[in-house]
């Protein structure tokens, strides 16, 4: 019965119905999660009613997640408001670089539920995960590098994951709570584009877990930066610290004549200008190198394939800065 009711509410939450006549402009709606708590609620006559009429206790699973996360030293999110800017490529390569040191345990969790790319990029497509008494055991690439993704749970790689928010949130919760990672030095979370269910849930579940911070990926053009600024403001709203910004696909060097072209032009100063304006660190720029895409398509590490490439160098410099950030955050 509850289900029917909630479905009704969901289908009826058109804005006019959920907003009182005397509400502030930009009222999030009385049924919204942020009712009474959002910026727009400041000074609204209904604010206290909205904020207090929700006798919701704390989610008991959050405690379990906290317990699991106590065994993870650094938790890094890889975010971007925009799709296709290279979040998964960066995630995979950050993991490869960190796991080069065999004494460091690294895990990747892919919470892009509808478009999981990590299994393909890291060359573990078609693997499956096993359930044991201590939780799901992730897929291991190396002794010190493991991966978890919805891709491992699907009957076939082409299966569409047509899930609404709550179902996605449930799986993300399980990924954080029920995967048997053991002791980890780094947990890297690859995310889908946007500022919606997955992101809100991550922020909520990891709120008291001493999250190290987020690396924000962008491409140089303004069309991408608009979305990325939204993501950064989102992080600030929900209290996710930002380690820095990476500009990906920054310039393309023609393999024939060695001249650099800007395929995605930085008409507004690119990530450098944006980072400066928003008071963030620019961690570095990775050039567009067709060999990166090819390495990802074949599930191999670009670093192993092309150790001397300029892009490899750029990646390493960025990853060093992230390592430093993590070291400082533990002092």
């Amino acid at each position: 019965r509850f289900l029917c009711f909630s479905r009704c509410v969901a289908s009826r939450t058109s804005m006019s119905e959920a907003v009182p006549a005397d509400a502030n402009e930009h009222c999030p709606g009385v049924l919204s999660e942020t009712a009474g708590k959002s910026e727009a609620c400041e000074g609204c006559p209904n604010q206290s009613i909205c904020a207090s009429s929700k006798p919701k206790g704390p989610d008991p699973d959050v405690g379990d997640i906290q317990e699991r996360m106590r065994h993870v030293k650094n938790k890094i999110l890889v975010l971007s408001g925009k799709g296709g800017v290279g979040k998964s490529t960066f995630t995979a390569h950050l993991a490869y670089a960190l796991a080069k040191d065999t004494s460091v345990n690294v895990a990747v969790v892919d919470v892009d539920i509808c478009g999981p790319s990590i299994p393909k990029i890291m060359g573990v497509e078609g693997e499956s995960v096993h359930r044991s008494s201590s939780g799901w055991s992730p897929v291991y690439l190396e002794d010190n590098l493991s991966v978890m993704s919805v891709g491992f749970l699907l009957p076939s790689a082409d299966e569409a994951v047509i899930w609404r928010g709550p179902k996605k949130n449930g799986l993300i919760k399980q990924f954080l709570k029920d995967v048997d990672w053991a002791e980890l030095d780094f947990l890297i979370v690859d995310t889908p584009p946007g500022t919606s269910d997955e992101h809100l849930s991550l922020a909520q579940y990891l709120s008291n877990c001493d999250l190290t911070g987020a690396v924000v990926i962008t491409t140089p053009q303004e069309v991408s930066l608009i979305d990325v600024r939204k993501e950064i403001n989102f992080c600030r709203k929900v209290g996710i610290p930002i380690i820095g910004v990476v500009e990906n696909m920054s310039g393309f060097v023609c393999p024939n004549c060695q001249t650099e072209s800007m395929i995605f032009p930085a008409t507004t100063g690119g990530a450098a200008r944006m980072a400066e304006e928003m008071g963030l660190n620019l961690l570095g720029k990775v050039p567009l190198d067709p060999r990166i895409g090819r390495a990802c398509d074949s599930g191999k590490s670009f670093f192993d394939e092309h150790p001397k490439a300029a892009a490899t160098q750029a990646f390493f410099e960025i990853i060093d800065k992230i390592r430093q950030f993590c070291a400082v955050s533990h002092q």
């Binding site: 804005m15 600024r229 939204k230």
Partner: peptide, 19 residues
Amino acid sequence: HDSDPIAWRGPKKSAMIQK
């Protein structure tokens, strides 16, 4: 503002699309 995030969960997004 261009840089305001829309941090909405599913039902709210669905309602907006319906609108």
